[in-house]
Amino acid sequence: MNFWPIVLDAMPQLLEGARLTILYSIAAVFFATILGLVFALFKLSSVSILRGIGQGYVHIFRGLPLLVLIFYIYFALPSVFPLQVWFGNKYMIMAGITALALNEGAYITEIIRAGILSIDRGQTEAAMSIGMTNFQTMRFIILPQALKRMVPPLVNQFIQTIKDTSLLSAISVAELTRRGQMIISVNFAGLQIWTAIAIVYLVIILSLTALSSYIERRWQVDQR
């Protein structure tokens, strides 16, 4: 059967979908990292209310299946607030990225928290002993060291996010999986198109994995 011609034929469309998949993943991870940093600091705070908020955030958004969260933000919330009216067709992508960011942010919170906790307590004490404030200690001493240890798990999370964007197909976002489904709905070539989709995902993810191990080697991140 004509297997590869159909695969190649679908490629331009799929690559356009892949571009969006990567774009949305970057946006989601960007916001997720901000959320993760804020809630990780909350969780490490000495103020019990902040710790509670951080704890609650992680529990809720790690506990909810991502698809349910996507549907909730996209289909349920607009029944309460006229979000679709305010944002028009942009709401689709906003909802998708928000859902991804909230979900990945919960995992990144734990990654950042673990990264910060892995730094020897003596570093904090030394910073404080020369008169640094809590903020300066975090900014100049702890985070730069923690970051190196956080890179491998953060890249893993980014890979996870790329895989998770396929769920956005359910709210009609034209990312890689959705493009593929659209092609199949016309040519019914399920085997060929799903193979092509799988190849594109693998190429993206394996390149990221390679990049990650390159960074790891360059920074000589200590394994412990």
């Binding site: 020897d120 003596g122 570093q123 004490e125 030394a126 910073a127 404080m128 002993s129 020369i130 008169g131 640094m132 404030t133 100049f140 001493i141 730069p144 060291q145 190196k148």
Partner: peptide
């Protein structure tokens, strides 16, 4: 913080900032 900058401290395990060079360790404060 204001008091601590007047009180120098040297630790048993040195606690140098691992990600900074010697000169940066001495200048950052």
């Amino acid at each position: 913080s204001l008091v601590r900058k007047e009180v120098g401290m040297v630790f048993q395990r040195f606690n140098l900032f691992q990600h900074l060079s010697v000169i940066e360790n001495v200048t950052i404060g």
